[in-house]
């Protein structure tokens, strides 16, 4: 499978996960959007040398994966494969910040390694948070929620069209790339000239397709407005979902739970 094929499969799989039927899937999408944002805000609000305080936050992804029946291994692999920008930049920290910051037993750890570790933890938590939102909600309900939360309609409508045709166009691009690869016997990426032609043709087809879609819409009385019959109702369950997590995040944010617990345990054993 080529690169496009993998991505195509990936989006499709995330979309399949979102079709699940756990109670988490059925929550009001707004509740999940808000909770995800609260989670990410809470995580990034810690100082750069935070390590232990992040650990309680793993409750959120672990709980969602478990209760939502999601494949944890797949999501974890996905997080690992994600663009390495954060790691690339983070790896400079140990080189630039070498003062001993932390001692575990007799091993001294420099501030740079601590902050690098902190970056990795942040990274895993925030990326997992975002992926879980889509895997438990689906893209269109997320858009719907954004609309209800006040994001302008033209933007949401085009998000909707975008997601719909993402599958069609990725598939088309994949077929073009496959047809090219089958006839070019040197391995590797395409030559620049081929690339421009492939892209140009894809763009022309896209423009034609947009025209046909517009025509199809006109045939059914499109007048510039998209009307939809959607209702979103929040129940007590949705509210409590947000409130409970908000409560937990606040506790995790304010109290360094691992240190307090560890201190207590150590006192007990002393």
């Amino acid at each position: 499978m080529n690169n496009i094929g993998r991505n195509y499969f990936d989006i499709g799989y995330m979309d399949t996960l979102a079709q699940g039927d756990s109670w988490l899937h059925q929550l009001d999408p707004r509740a999940k959007v808000i909770t995800t944002l609260l989670f990410i805000m809470a995580v990034v609000s810690f100082g750069k040398y935070t390590i232990w305080a992040f650990i309680p936050f793993f409750l959120y992804p672990v709980f969602l994966i478990a209760a939502g029946g999601l494949p944890g291994g797949y999501l974890f692999k996905k997080v690992l494969l994600v663009s390495p920008f954060a790691i690339l930049l983070g790896i400079f920290n140990p080189l630039l910040d070498r003062e001993i910051f932390l001692l575990i037993g007799t091993i001294g750890i420099s501030g740079g390694w601590v902050s690098f570790g902190s970056i990795l933890l942040r990274f895993v938590l925030t990326v997992t948070g975002a992926l879980l939102l889509v895997a438990l909600t689906g893209f269109n309900p997320v858009c719907e929620a954004l609309r209800k939360l006040g994001v302008p309609k033209p933007f949401v409508i085009q998000l909707m069209f975008f997601y719909r045709y993402l599958f069609v166009l990725t598939d088309e691009a994949q077929r073009m790339e496959r047809a090219r690869a089958l006839r070019s016997f040197h391995s590797g990426f395409m030559k620049y000239r081929t690339f421009v032609s492939v892209l140009g043709h894809l763009l022309l087809r896209t423009l034609d397709r947009a025209e046909r879609i517009y025509y199809a819409m006109c045939c059914r009385g499109f007048d510039g407005q998209i009307h939809r019959l959607t209702s979103m109702k929040s129940s007590l369950r949705d509210f409590s979902f947000v409130i409970i997590w908000l409560g937990l995040f606040s506790v995790f944010r304010i109290y360094n739970v691992p240190e307090e617990l560890g201190g207590w345990v150590m006192r007990c054993f002393r």
Binding site: F162, L166, T170, K191, L199, M217
Partner: peptide, 27 residues
């Protein structure tokens, strides 16, 4: 109020998304 742009924007977004995955070798 350019009605044509309603589907065009979304479909072009999908085009960019697909196009970003097509790589060419820089000589």
């Amino acid at each position: 109020a350019d009605d044509r742009k309603v589907p065009l924007m979304g479909v072009l977004g999908a085009f960019i998304f697909a196009a970003q995955m097509i790589n060419f070798s820089i000589p």
